[in-house]
């Protein structure tokens, strides 16, 4: 058995979600190979070769892979992936964009958001916004899975000594073109990798008021997250959204401020180790999952918290 992982990266650095996927791949058994498709991405391949548990890295370096467009990338993954028993990618927006396309081209099912590997053909995944967990068995010879990062530990980024082999590009259907990217820049840690997340909801009231949260985040070295309602209201950009249809996070500490606790939001954060809720409504459902609940108005509580943390 051998497993192919499609690495997630930005041509400069490997994204940490790839490390969690390596751990999942090891649970399947057999050799773990990593495909790095990118442009000027040699450094990414070298980083992948150092991951403990990776036996081989395949580097496809070509301008057509620069932006990870699904149309050319899926052709490459299929050409290479046919020789494997399983193809894995992190369950990120890139993995979710490409892997179903790969699976359909191979005429096999794709299994999304795998949270546990029971055996090489049996997997656990959440359905209904994580309100139920399904154990599914695949009848296909080749398994195509996206892996939920929060469910698997990260493999060690060093210690490995895999070889890097270059592979040729697989052709470009020329149906799609990259135009632009608006990537939010932040000094704060990445949401999916942060140890602490401070998150705000619609009750924050405005973009301006989110500064109160940012102050707390900076004192704790935390990332800032948000609900869909807060994003829809324009308080913060879309990439901060946590939930069923946003990012899935599981930090050591999740502080939910002015968040009611809708199931779609809980779906993205209920595996956090410690949850704190600050809400002025003592009936808010978020208190049912919070380890520590504070019934308070945020405009009083957050400045107090800032002072308390400075002590």
């Amino acid at each position: 058995m051998s497993v192919l992982i499609i690495a997630e990266h930005d041509n400069i650095a490997l994204k940490s979600a790839t490390l969690n996927t390596v751990t999942a791949a090891q649970k399947l058994g057999g050799d773990v190979h990593v495909l790095v498709a990118g442009h000027g991405a040699r450094a990414v391949a070298d980083a992948a070769a150092k991951i403990t548990g990776v036996a081989k890295v395949l580097l496809a370096d070509d301008p057509i892979y620069e932006h990870g467009l699904a149309e050319p990338l899926s052709l490459l993954a299929v050409a290479i992936g046919r020789a494997y028993q399983a193809i894995l990618a992190p369950a990120t927006t890139s993995g979710k964009n490409v892997l179903p396309r790969v699976a359909a081209l191979l005429d096999v099912a794709q299994i999304s958001d795998v949270c546990a590997i029971v055996s090489p053909d049996t997997f656990v995944r959440p359905i209904y916004a994580g309100n139920a967990m399904a154990t599914v068995q695949s009848k296909d010879a080749l398994k195509v899975l996206t892996v939920r990062g929060t469910s698997f530990d990260a493999a060690k980024a060093d210690g490995g000594e895999a070889v890097v082999e270059t592979v040729t590009a697989a052709g470009n259907p020329g149906l799609s073109a990259f135009i632009s990217q608006q990537v939010s820049k932040s000094e704060r840690p990445d949401l999916t990798a942060a140890r602490i997340i401070v998150s705000g909801g619609r009750g924050m009231g405005s973009q301006e008021n989110f500064k109160l949260l940012e102050t707390i985040a900076d004192k704790l070295g935390a990332a800032v997250g948000a609900t869909r309602a807060a994003v829809d209201a324009g308080f913060v950009p879309n990439d901060l959204q946590i939930g069923q249809t946003g990012k899935i996070v599981a930090p050591e500490l999740y502080v939910a401020v002015a968040i009611s606790g809708a199931i779609q939001h809980l779906a993205g954060m209920k595996d956090s180790k410690i949850i704190v809720a600050i809400n002025k409504d003592e009936e808010a459902p978020i208190f049912q999952v919070a380890d520590y609940g504070l019934v308070a108005d945020l405009f009083q509580a957050l400045p107090e918290l800032a002072t308390e943390l400075s002590k």
């Binding site: 994580g130 139920a132 399904a134 154990t135 599914v136 609940g293």
Partner: peptide, 20 residues
């Protein structure tokens, strides 16, 4: 179907904690 659902379970429930 290519996938057979073997079972569906409740997720682990969190215990509500304390109010401070």
């Amino acid at each position: 179907p290519r996938l057979v659902t073997l079972k569906v379970e409740e997720p682990q429930r969190r215990q509500a904690g304390v109010k401070v």
